[in-house]
Computed example of a mutant assay.
Amino acid sequence: MKNSLRVHAALLIVAVIYAANYSLSKDVMPHYMGPFGIVTLRILGAALFFALVSRLVAPQDRLTGRADNIRAILCGIIGIGGNQLLFFSGLNFTSPINASLLQTIAPIVVVIASAVLLGEKITLLRVLGIILGGIGAATVILSRQAGSIVYPNATLGNIFILLNATAFGVYLVLVTPLMRKYHPFTVLARIFLVGAVVAVPFGWRGVLSADYGSFPLYIWAEIVYMVVCLTILAYLLNNWALKYASPALLGVYIYLQPILAVLIAVALGKDHFTGARALQAALIFGGVFLVSRKPKEAAVAPDDAIPLEPVQD
């Protein structure tokens, strides 16, 4: 399999994993375990896994220099601890489809963060895309469904999901240089360790107070899915892909997540799709499409191309 095909295959698997989580997590929260407890289990499990594997596959690889270590700490705080606490808190309050639509905003955040942190040019077309995507996100957050009986706190949940998407977009920009310089397991071990320091103070009570004896088999299976697939496998594949492709390519696959999430949520009876949501999706997708288009002069520049081969340092 060519390297470009492996990258696309990895990103497709990640999209499916994330899409299924929107519905599966609703089985666990909040009856069996609260969102902070789930986040703590996920991050601790992943931190132990990546710490062990990094010692086995890249024992001599170390993050060096003050700048790289500060960047790794920021990635752990923003992309692991803060990102996951916001996501599960938001998903606990809002519907699977709303959450998946708002997550699609992440590529817009990538462009804004790239402009602020990397000095990337923002064109008029991208400004229009940011406005269009923002309108779409606002209609989701302020929709009448936010006050429904099923999700009475959906507005708060939608805001948390929007903040989560923002954190994830900033994380993609911050982590890319590290993934291209060091072994992925080295980076993941460090940032998940930082993420654990952030998450444990919020979630340790939820982990200890859960009535594990009352968990049916399917709840155990979904918790294992969230720890192994959603955390370890998804982060591994996502960050491996960053070694070969720019954050913009990952952003393209975010389009696929809400489509898959809608299909899964409707199939499992967790949510329903309406005409209003279709319009909201069109606004957000349109905004992301405009933002993802590079200026003509930049499209031919070698430094801005999306590499599908390893970057040589």
Rank of each mutant, 00 (worst) to 15 (best):
K270V: 06
L249A: 04
L132I: 02
W220H: 14
L250D: 02
I149H: 12
F93N: 13
G157T: 01
T64K: 13
I43P: 09
T231K: 04
F273T: 03
I219M: 06
N3T: 15
N21V: 11
S246F: 01
A15Y: 11
A221G: 10
L118G: 03
I259T: 08
I97C: 05
I43F: 04
T155Y: 00
K270D: 14
L63M: 08
V252A: 12
V53R: 07
P35Y: 09
F285W: 08
V110M: 11
G90Q: 09
V109I: 13
A115N: 02
N21P: 09
T104G: 02
V224N: 05
S95E: 14
K294N: 11
M29G: 10
K296L: 15
V173E: 06
T104N: 14
I159R: 00
L63H: 05
V194D: 05
I141E: 01
F49N: 03
L124M: 07
V228Q: 01
L118N: 08
G169S: 03
N239T: 13
Y244D: 04
V194K: 01
A46C: 11
Q145C: 00
N164E: 12
A276R: 07
K243M: 14
G37C: 12
G213C: 10
L290H: 06
V7I: 15
A99S: 13
D61M: 05
A146K: 00
S23F: 12
I112S: 01
A189Y: 08
L178K: 01
S23P: 06
P59G: 11
A19H: 11
A301S: 11
G129M: 10
P258Q: 11
L117F: 13
F202G: 06
Y244F: 15
S114G: 14
